[in-house]
Write a protein that binds this DNA or RNA. Structure first.
Length: 828
DNA sequence: GAAATCTTGCTTTTT
DNA sequence: GCAAGATTTC
């Protein structure tokens, strides 16, 4: 289980959101007394200690408490430190109490980190920061309070993408639109994009909705309608509804404007239009808003983030103070210089110059490989060498190293390789627990039990495990529900009463309904118990109905008696045991919650999957996006090839804007490295199972050459001519030539020629060498060779011009000698 | 109704 | 090259 998940880790830090009364410091806030938290801040040894720790720029940003502030914080410049110190400063100057500060982040992880660090600064736990969280988590709180203003009940469910797609699919079908031509997935993306722009169906510009036979807006409208019927929202709605409420109900908005005395925003460059409006509305009155961000690290444009928001800040908030944090505490000068040389290619920047007083350190390393497998092999070897300390550097552990890829499919090559050499690794951001089939099914059971009107949950599990309720039976249920205007569960009830369903299916359905009813009753007792316990600390009365058992037992019972567990026990596919294991973990995770409802609420919002609880050091593999905000002493950046990185799709879809975002991604990647950064590319890569030759990324050309050392891959272009030409590089030549013997290699030149972009000169030695070598065809047993189709192999027999070869992957084959080449000088 | 086989489209990136 | 979905087959 390479990507084994630890649910426990996901929930470890979770402040239970089960009851939202605890955050209602809001209403209770009339007491003029200072909270224990700010008291602690005041009496903490000397109130200035946290300020002494800051550099001048950080201190300036922390002390500028009133009015709009833009903190431009470059990579590794101590932005979280500044942000958390600012919070503490707000407390200790008495400007705001913890529950009057709104601080928003994008990820749960960032929110946790901030909470932890504020606590550390204060030397104790923070009890009263209910408004520190992600945009989404905070919006859920707000929306629960004002749900009726959005036509919802306050116990609305938050749909996951899966439910969303299924719902949209139904709509598309109902509208007689060809689902193949216009997939639900695409509609989901479209609607999501609209929501990110804060467009309600009425606000979608007519020119926008050409897709779906010009019926995009119509479908959007129907979808919203359906969501309201289901008392459900999707992710985009969380923001959109709140913004709409604020816009339509100035009294509500005003209440919050007054309440949130200070607003802090992390990663401001990632805000989309809806979030931007949300912030502007809330900050509209006092304008005490401090946005922290780095325009150079804006990498979420594809999901609606607007770099423009940060670029425009000073216009949006006249008189804003801008503070630049430019001292970098993370990387060596070479790394910073190289990163800065790449990012300087972007036009639209606010501009920052990072500097550091760290010692010079190693140059970045650049290396080209024959193909992706070779790249993975080399990096694996390199990691092992670095762990042993054989690179002339002090030994690193796996935890110190990370491989950052552009697209997740690149991970496979590394996983394969690391598995074969037994190198421990961890994949960050892989398939998440809540996306797993069995977890979703189980959750659907829980959902149906807590809210029997949840039709989507019903659909998902009526026939899971098989209850003999196929398409036609389900259609009957649908019809019964629609005819009576009820939920599917009640529709099924009516159907049974009317004898609309008979036989085995009917019996099973009836049993299913009875079970849900019974469990619902228990779940209801749990939630009322929780509410009562919250409201008055009185121990439950004798005569108050009491649940026969706790929510954990309930969950177990649901999964067992419904036959769901059994279904997997009887399943003989190899993944079944893992699924059962996951279900166990799911139940275990319930321990941290009071009842199922609280659990569901939490899971809906938990979108990250942190699992760093392993004792064994492991190399991290993740995407560049997932790496933002992280740092590692050693970083590998493979796959720097045009089309892959920068991604073709990104450039096709968004042109120059897309390219600039890719470049920022490159910047993010390089700046993750503290000491050693290795960029690599491969000449060949399998794309959709098809071999394709690749050109090195244009970003490689943008690296400042004085900060880069070009490595010759051992065994590739090495020995013979490669080494001969490699050492003697003349200065003053075109950059590419000075950069490497890689660039002098036959393969490279071939690639250049193909691209119509020839290097100015070619070292004599390398010309024609390839042909000479292969023409000689003097093969011996034991020799390593390469075959275009079968890959690498070792010669185990020679018969005239026929060779018997044991290929690494393809097995033993007999091939004609002229079809194989020496792996050291394979022509492209 | 379920299993076996064939086809398709897919690779960004995520709250 | 693969996984999901569709289609065919039992």
């Amino acid at each position: 289980m390479g990507t084994s998940l630890s649910l426990a880790a996901c929930f470890r830090y979770s402040a239970p959101m089960s009851s939202f009364s605890e955050d209602d410091a809001f209403e209770a806030a009339s007491q003029p007394v200072r909270t224990p938290l700010s008291q602690r801040a005041m009496q903490g040894a000397r109130p200035t200690t946290y300020l002494d720790d800051l550099n001048p720029a950080q201190r300036e940003a922390v002390e500028a408490l009133d009015g709009p502030v833009l903190m431009l914080a470059g990579a590794g410049t101590g932005k979280t430190k500044a942000l958390t110190s600012r919070i503490v400063h707000l407390f200790s100057t008495g400007r705001a109490r913890p529950n009057e500060i709104l601080s928003v982040t994008f990820t749960n992880k960032a929110a946790r980190e901030m909470k932890t660090r504020v606590e550390r600064l204060l030397g104790g736990a923070v009890e009263g920061m209910p408004w520190l969280g992600t945009f989404h988590a905070i919006c859920v709180k707000l929306l629960r309070r004002h749900a009726e203003l959005a036509g919802l009940k306050s116990n609305f469910t938050i749909l996951d993408t899966d439910d969303q797609i299924r719902l949209l699919k139904q709509l598309i079908l109902a509208n007689n639109i060809d689902e193949k031509r216009w997939p639900a997935r695409q509609l989901a993306n479209l609607i999501d994009a609209w929501k990110n722009r804060a467009w309600t169906p009425a606000k979608v510009p007519s020119g926008e909705a050409t897709a779906f036979n010009n019926r995009g807006t119509e479908l959007y409208e129907q979808y919203q309608h359906r969501l309201r019927e289901l008392n459900a929202v999707d992710f985009g709605d969380l923001l959109l509804h709140v913004v709409t409420i604020f816009q339509a109900h100035p009294d509500v908005l005003e209440q919050y404007q007054r309440w949130f005395k200070y607003i802090l925003v992390d990663e401001y460059q990632d805000t989309n239009v809806a979030q931007y409006l949300w912030l502007r509305l809330l900050a509209g009155a006092h304008k005490n808003i401090c946005c922290v961000g780095d325009d150079d690290q804006s990498i979420y444009g594809w999901r609606g983030a607007e770099v423009g928001n940060i670029l425009r800040f000073e216009k949006d908030f006249p008189g804003a103070k801008t503070v630049r944090l430019e001292q970098n505490y993370r990387s060596t000068p070479h790394i910073l210089a190289a990163a800065s040389s790449v990012i300087s290619g972007n036009e639209n920047r606010l501009g920052k110059t990072l500097w550091t007083d760290k010692p010079e350190g190693e140059k970045l390393r650049l290396i080209g490989h024959w193909d992706g497998d070779e790249e993975a092999r080399w990096i694996g070897d390199e990691i092992e060498a670095l762990e042993k300390g054989t690179r002339g550097l002090s030994p690193y552990t796996g935890d110190d190293m990370a491989i950052l890829v552009r697209a997740s499919h690149q991970m496979r090559a590394f996983e394969d390789r690391f598995l074969t050499i037994g190198l421990p690794y961890r994949v960050i951001g892989g398939p998440r627990f809540y996306e797993r089939l069995e977890i979703r099914d189980a959750m659907a059971y829980f959902r149906l039990v807590t809210s029997p009107a949840d039709d989507l949950a019903f659909e998902r599990i009526v026939n899971q495990p098989k209850r003999g309720l196929g398409d036609k039976a389900q259609q009957k249920i649908q019809m019964a529900a629609r005819a009576n205007g009820t939920s599917l569960l009640d529709g099924a009830r009516i159907l049974l009463q009317d004898q609309g369903l008979t036989g085995k299916g009917a019996a099973q359905l009836s049993r299913f309904i009875d079970q849900i009813d019974r469990w619902h009753e228990v779940a209801r007792l749990h939630t009322t118990a929780a509410t009562l316990a919250d409201e008055d600390d009185v121990i439950l009365d004798e005569d108050r109905p009491q649940a026969p058992f706790g929510h954990i037992e309930l969950a177990e019972q649901i999964l067992d008696e419904s036959g769901y567990t059994e279904m997997w026990q009887n399943d003989k596919t190899p993944e079944a045991p893992g699924r059962l294991e996951n279900l166990k973990e799911l139940v275990k995770a319930l321990e941290n919650f009071d009842n199922l409802q609280g659990f569901l609420e939490h899971v809906a919002l938990i979108m990250d999957n942190e699992r760093n609880d392993d004792a064994e050091p492991k190399v991290s593999i993740m995407t560049l996006h997932a790496a933002k905000g992280l740092e590692f002493p050693v970083v590998f950046l493979p796959g720097w090839e045009d089309g892959l990185f920068p991604s073709q799709r990104s450039m096709d879809e968004s042109g120059l804007k897309g390219l600039e975002e890719e470049r920022r991604l490159a910047y993010v990647g390089i700046t993750r490295a503290e000491e050693l950064c290795t960029i690599s590319f491969a000449g060949n890569r399998r794309v959709f199972g098809q071999w394709q030759s690749q050109l090195p990324s244009r970003f490689i050309d943008e690296l400042s050459e004085e900060d880069v050392e070009v490595l010759t891959p051992p065994g590739l272009y090495g020995g013979g001519f490669g080494a001969a030409s490699g050492g003697s590089v003349q200065s003053g030549m075109e950059k590419r030539m000075t950069e490497a013997n890689v660039y002098n290699s036959p393969g490279w030149q071939r690639m250049q020629a193909r691209a119509g972009n020839r290097p100015v000169s070619q070292p004599r030695e390398s010309r024609g060498s390839v042909i000479d070598m292969t023409a000689a065809s003097s093969h011996t047993v034991g020799e390593r060779v390469f075959h275009q189709k079968f890959g690498y192999g070792e010669i185990i027999g020679v018969e005239g011009d026929k060779l018997e070869i044991a290929f690494d992957k393809a097995g033993v084959k007999k091939v004609v000698a002229k079809f194989v080449t020496n792996p050291d000088d394979v022509p492209f």
